[in-house]
Computed example of a mutant assay.
Amino acid sequence: MESNYHTLKRTDNQLLVITHLSQLLTYVTGFGGVLAPLIIWATQKDQVDGMDAHGKSILNFQLSMLIYSIISIPLIFVVGLGILTLILVAILAFIMPIINAVKASNGELPSYPMSINFIS
């Protein structure tokens, strides 16, 4: 039997901010920047207004940064350009979560540059 019951999503900009900032766990644990936002997104996407869009953007960004990092490693030996790419990835992966946390606190949608759309 199909139900017409729709649950209302709550507005929780603070949780959206925490979700963006949780990406910075990568600098502490090495992998928490993917796991923490994934867990928050998976458990809250149906309860928090905007969480689905924010979570997908975060995961797409994190996966993109991982791929760019992996591609950069052989480029270090081949061209030497890989070091610059790794530095750029590290800077983007640190600054963009902070910028998008501020956007989330203002009720704006996130925008992550160089992000490949894996999850839509």
Rank of each mutant, 00 (worst) to 15 (best):
Q14A: 06
N13G: 06
K9R: 12
L38M: 15
N60M: 06
L84G: 14
G107D: 00
S111Q: 15
Q44A: 07
V89H: 05
Y68C: 06
N100P: 12
L25V: 04
G82F: 02
G55N: 05
I83F: 07
Q47C: 09
I119N: 14
L35H: 11
P110A: 15
N117L: 02
G33S: 09
M114C: 11
T26N: 14
G80T: 13
I73A: 06
L109P: 03
S115C: 06
Y5H: 14
Y5T: 08
V48Q: 03
F77Q: 13
L15T: 05
L86W: 04
F77S: 10
F61M: 10
I99L: 02
G82T: 03
L38A: 13
V78K: 01
L24G: 06
L75H: 05
G80F: 09
I119L: 14
G32E: 00
V79D: 08
T19W: 01
F31R: 09
Q47G: 11
P113S: 08
V48N: 07
T7K: 15
N13W: 01
N13K: 07
P37W: 07
H54T: 06
A101I: 05
Y27H: 12
Q14I: 00
H54P: 13
L38R: 11
L21C: 05
L81T: 10
S69D: 09
L15W: 03
D52R: 13
T85C: 00
V79A: 12
H20M: 04
Q62C: 10
Q44M: 14
A101N: 04
T29K: 10
Q62E: 12
L63D: 12
Q62M: 13
T85K: 04
D46Q: 12
A101R: 01
H54S: 14
I40S: 04
S115M: 02
P97E: 04
I87M: 01
I18K: 03
I91P: 03
A93R: 03
I98E: 02
T19I: 04
F61R: 07
T43G: 09
G50C: 05
G50N: 07
I119H: 12
V78A: 02
L75N: 07
K9V: 10
H20R: 08
D49T: 04
